[in-house]
Simulated assay, not measured.
Amino acid sequence: MFPTLVRRLAQATKPQANSAVSGTVKLKKVWPPDLKSMSMQQQLRFEKKYKRRLKLATARPRWDKMVRLGQLFSITFVLGYMVLFMDWRDVPTPFDPIREKFYGFFGVFTEETRKLDRRDRYIPSQPSTK
C-alpha cells in the first residue's frame, strides 16, 4: 500500500478530460451569469430555474421518508405511553376511560388471572376444587 501511494504521488498529473476547461471549446454560457446585465424578468426566471434544479439535485426521498416515519413512531409511542402507562399520581385525566378499557381488555393477561385459567396444572397455593 505504501509503495503504491509513493509511486502515484511521484507520477505526473494527467491532463483534464474535459476539453472545456483547457479552452479548446468555447462555452455556450458563461457561469456564473452576470445578473447586472439581465433584466428583472430574466433574473427571476434564472433564479426560479436555479432553485428548482438545486432542489432536485439535493432531494433525498428515502432519507426524508425515514425521518418522517421516525418522527411519527416516536410521537405515537410517547403519546401512547402517556395515555396508557404513565402514572398520573391520582390526578383525574380525560384519558381515564381509555385506560379503563385498555386494562379491561388486556386484564386477562395479568398474573392472577393466568393462574386461574389453567386447570390442567397443579397450583399448590389454591385448594383443589375436585
Score class of each variant (00 low, 15 high):
residue 119 R to Y: 08
residue 32 P to V: 01
residue 88 W to Q: 04
residue 65 K to C: 03
residue 94 P to A: 07
residue 29 K to A: 08
residue 129 T to C: 08
residue 85 F to A: 05
residue 72 L to A: 13
residue 93 T to G: 03
residue 54 L to F: 10
residue 110 T to H: 08
residue 52 R to G: 03
residue 86 M to Y: 13
residue 117 D to F: 08
residue 14 K to F: 08
residue 19 S to W: 02
residue 92 P to K: 06
residue 34 D to Q: 08
residue 84 L to V: 10
residue 40 M to E: 15
residue 50 Y to M: 10
residue 104 G to D: 03
residue 39 S to R: 01
residue 127 P to T: 00
residue 6 V to W: 01
residue 42 Q to H: 04
residue 22 S to E: 10
residue 115 K to N: 03
residue 60 R to M: 09
residue 113 T to M: 10
residue 43 Q to I: 11
residue 54 L to I: 04
residue 19 S to P: 05
residue 6 V to R: 12
residue 77 F to T: 00
residue 94 P to D: 01
residue 45 R to Q: 05
residue 58 T to H: 01
residue 63 W to D: 13
residue 7 R to E: 03
residue 62 R to Q: 14
residue 7 R to V: 06
residue 8 R to S: 10
residue 20 A to K: 07
residue 130 K to Q: 01
residue 4 T to D: 01
residue 41 Q to H: 00
residue 16 Q to Y: 09
residue 105 F to A: 14
residue 69 L to D: 09
residue 43 Q to S: 11
residue 24 T to S: 04
residue 117 D to H: 13
residue 9 L to Q: 05
residue 65 K to F: 12
residue 130 K to C: 01
residue 117 D to V: 13
residue 110 T to V: 11
residue 97 P to D: 00
residue 53 R to K: 02
residue 88 W to A: 10
residue 47 E to G: 07
residue 28 K to N: 11
residue 34 D to S: 07
residue 74 S to V: 11
residue 128 S to L: 12
residue 63 W to C: 03
residue 40 M to N: 15
residue 60 R to D: 14
residue 107 G to W: 11
residue 113 T to Q: 10
